[in-house]
Design a protein around this nucleic acid. Sequence first.
DNA 1: CCCTTTTCACCTAGGTGGTAAGAT
DNA 2: ATCTTACCACCTAGGTGAAAAGGG
Lengths: 177, 177
Amino acid sequence: MLRMFPTVRVSFTGLTPDQRYGVLLDIVPVDNKRYRYAYHRSSWLVAGKADPPAPARLYIHPDSPFTGEQLRKQVVSFEKVKLTNNEQDKHGQIVLNSMHRYQPRVHLIKWREGIVPTTTNIDLDSEKFRTYIFPETVFTAVTAYQNQLITKLKIDSNPFAKGFRDSSRLTDFDRDP
Amino acid sequence: MLRMFPTVRVSFTGLTPDQRYGVLLDIVPVDNKRYRYAYHRSSWLVAGKADPPAPARLYIHPDSPFTGEQLRKQVVSFEKVKLTNNEQDKHGQIVLNSMHRYQPRVHLIKWREGIVPTTTNIDLDSEKFRTYIFPETVFTAVTAYQNQLITKLKIDSNPFAKGFRDSSRLTDFDRDP
DNA sequence: CCCTTTTCACCTAGGTGGTAAGAT
DNA sequence: ATCTTACCACCTAGGTGAAAAGGG
């Protein structure tokens, strides 16, 4: 039950100001492989065929619906989306397999009044959708960091990890009285 | 910018299971008077004419819309509604005058798809509404408690005031080493 | 004099990576 | 051997009344 960090953030231009839109996020497998990390060469290696994926869940940005006007002015930030490796998850979190590679996707839909979009009532192929994919957001899911640069990035950038930053990590011996 | 405590909590019966409803709260003046507290007799006294009230703001329960089915099963709790005495408030909080008496009201509406209810677009006299008033919830707004029983009720009941409960209020002298 | 605002220690609630223990 | 889970200290974020300071 972890948040996704860094956070997916998107902005939009060219929308109809008074149209209402939903902004959704899902995460799909990049390939059919499982990976392992080779420490001695600091790189990911293919380690076999993928485990069967859980059905992709749609995360509806909680501030949806947005008007086109709102989306022109503000960045939509998915900081609260939560990930889990628990296939039985009952909290609507996005279910991923550890040691597999994933692509986040952002979907923009025309808001259908009276229908709260869910994984089962949305037709992703409908023309009501636009799907945006940024290949630079591909990531490998893990239960423990394999790469110290990732750990450093998170500690340096995530406010909740402030306690692990260098200047806070003095030992008692290092501290002034 | 304070929460309302104790919290207004309501439950419903007899609704249409698949109809969607909004549950709203507002707070209206009980009378046209201002009050002061007489410590020596432990009671409120009329202290003149009321100050002009700010327009009553509607607080839409953030889990709205609910289905009739949901409202049959769960209690709706207004724990997050916030009160202020700042007439210029820009955060949509409910604006009250200190030392005045108020009646909370709960409104049930048929959810009109595509219209997020606000103070200005809702006609409180429309037949789409039902308004529920519980006279036992009348209260007097203050900036500082006038009555030690109120202070005790809040400290004993509000989880955030746990630090002021008797067993936690030992002095250093009373503590074990 | 009476009421309001500000600041504070002390809570709830929950997001961090480290570490040790557990699982396969 | 490799990956996962449970627990921990340490944070962010924000809700409490007490007490002191502010204001008309």
